[in-house]
Amino acid sequence: QVATSTVRILGMTCQSCVKSIEDRISNLKGIISMKVSLEQGSATVKYVPSVVCLQQVCHQIGDMGFEASIAE
């Protein structure tokens, strides 16, 4: 089973930030795809909930120095 959710990301300033986040999160087990939008300050994450949760994704992004939260 696959889920798609949006994560809000604060602190991104350039495409390099976007690429860094996409590269790191895409390597997590259970992540199918991730598309980060600098303009919208968010990311669309396609993932397998039984393998990885959005809290883990937000935590990983937080470790990179950005502020991440699950969009309502």
Rank of each mutant, 00 (worst) to 15 (best):
V48E: 10
S20G: 05
S20L: 15
S16V: 13
T4S: 08
V7Y: 03
E72K: 07
S5L: 07
Q55G: 07
M12P: 00
Q1L: 07
L54I: 14
V36W: 03
I31R: 00
R24D: 04
N27P: 10
D23L: 10
E22L: 07
I31V: 14
S5M: 10
L28Y: 06
L38A: 01
Q55D: 09
S69K: 08
I32K: 04
C14R: 01
S26T: 11
M12F: 04
L10Q: 11
F66K: 02
I31T: 00
V2I: 11
Q55R: 09
C58L: 15
R8H: 13
M12R: 00
K29H: 09
L54C: 04
G41C: 09
R8M: 11
D23F: 09
V52I: 14
A71V: 14
A43Y: 03
V45W: 03
C53V: 08
S5W: 06
Y47R: 00
T13Y: 15
E67S: 14
Q40I: 08
V51M: 14
C14T: 06
G62R: 15
C17A: 05
S16G: 08
I9C: 05
K46V: 15
L28H: 03
K35H: 11
R24K: 13
G41Y: 07
E72V: 11
A3C: 15
T44H: 08
Q15L: 12
A3S: 13
V7C: 14
V45F: 06
S37M: 07
E39I: 11
V48Y: 15
L10W: 14
L54E: 01
Q56F: 14
D63Q: 15
K46M: 12
I21C: 04
V2S: 09
V45G: 02
G62D: 14
P49R: 09
C53Y: 07
Q60G: 05
S37R: 08
E72G: 12
H59T: 15
S50K: 09
S69C: 08
K35T: 11
V52Y: 02
Q55V: 12
L38V: 03
S5N: 09
M64D: 01
K19F: 09
A3K: 14
C53M: 11
I32C: 05
Q1T: 12
D63I: 13
S50R: 07
Q1C: 15
E22I: 08
T4R: 07
V2Y: 14
G30I: 07
G62H: 14
S16W: 05
V52S: 01
S26K: 11
I61N: 02
V57Q: 01
Q56K: 09
K35W: 07
S42A: 10
S33L: 08
V51H: 05
I25Y: 03
A43K: 01
I61R: 03
G65K: 01
G65Y: 05
G11V: 05
A71N: 13
V48K: 10
V48H: 15
I25H: 02
V57R: 03
T6M: 14
V36E: 00
Q1R: 08
G65T: 03
M64E: 01
A71H: 07
L10C: 06
F66S: 01
R24W: 05
G65P: 01
V51W: 06
H59N: 14
E67G: 08
T13K: 12
V2G: 05
I25R: 02
S37Y: 09
P49D: 04
T4K: 08
I21P: 03
R8K: 11
R8L: 10
S5I: 08
A71M: 13
D23T: 11
S50V: 05
K46N: 08
V52L: 10
K35F: 08
Q40G: 10
I61G: 04
T13I: 11
A71Y: 13
E39W: 08
V51C: 04
A68V: 12
R8S: 08
Q15T: 08
K46Q: 13
R24I: 06
S20C: 06
S5C: 15
K29E: 12
K46S: 13
Q15M: 13
Q40V: 06
R8V: 10
R24L: 06
V36C: 08
I70P: 09
S5H: 11
L54G: 01
N27D: 11
A71L: 15
M64T: 01
Q40W: 12
Q56W: 15
K29F: 11
S42C: 11
Q55T: 09
D63K: 13
S37A: 06
S69W: 14
G62Q: 15
I31F: 03
S26P: 01
V18I: 05
Q55S: 11
H59V: 14
S5Q: 08
C14Q: 02
C17M: 05
S50C: 05
R24Y: 07
I25P: 01
I70Q: 05
E39L: 10
Q56C: 09
C17N: 06
P49S: 08
V7F: 10
S16R: 12
I32S: 00
V57T: 01
C14I: 05
L28P: 01
A71G: 11
S42K: 14
V51D: 07
V51K: 07
R24M: 07
G41Q: 14
I31E: 00
S33D: 08
V48S: 12
G62E: 15
V45C: 05
I32Y: 05
Q55I: 13
G65S: 02
Q15W: 09
K35A: 08
I31Q: 00
A3N: 09
E39G: 07
V45R: 01
V51L: 13
L54F: 04
T13M: 11
G30S: 03
G30R: 04
V2K: 04
G30C: 07
A71R: 07
H59A: 14
C14S: 07
Q1Y: 11
E67H: 12
T4Q: 08
C58I: 15
M34R: 00
D23S: 13
E67T: 11
I32W: 05
G62A: 15
A71E: 12
C58E: 09
V51F: 07
L10M: 09
K19E: 11
E22K: 05
S20N: 14
R8Q: 10
V45P: 00
T4F: 09
T44I: 15
T6Q: 12
K29I: 10
V18G: 06
I32N: 01
V51Q: 11
V7W: 05
I31L: 02
S50W: 08
D63P: 03
E67V: 10
K35D: 07
S16I: 14
A3V: 12
L38W: 06
I70L: 10
T13H: 14
E72F: 10
L28Q: 06
S16F: 07
L38G: 00
S20K: 15
V52R: 00
P49Y: 06
Y47N: 01
Y47L: 03
V48I: 14
I25F: 10
L28E: 03
S33N: 07
T4V: 12
Q55W: 14
F66Y: 13
D23A: 13
V18H: 01
S42L: 15
Y47V: 02
I25N: 01
P49I: 07
I61T: 03
E67W: 12
L28G: 01
I70M: 09
S37K: 05
V45K: 02
Q56D: 14
P49K: 07
V36N: 00
L38C: 05
E22W: 07
S69Y: 13
N27E: 13
K19S: 10
V36S: 00
A43M: 07
Q15Y: 13
E22R: 04
Q56M: 10
N27I: 12
D23P: 01
Q55N: 09
V57G: 02
N27V: 12
S50F: 08
V52D: 01
H59D: 15
D23W: 09
L38H: 03
K35P: 00
S33Q: 10
Q15H: 10
D63A: 14
L54M: 09
M34Q: 00
T44C: 13
S37P: 00
F66H: 01
V7N: 01
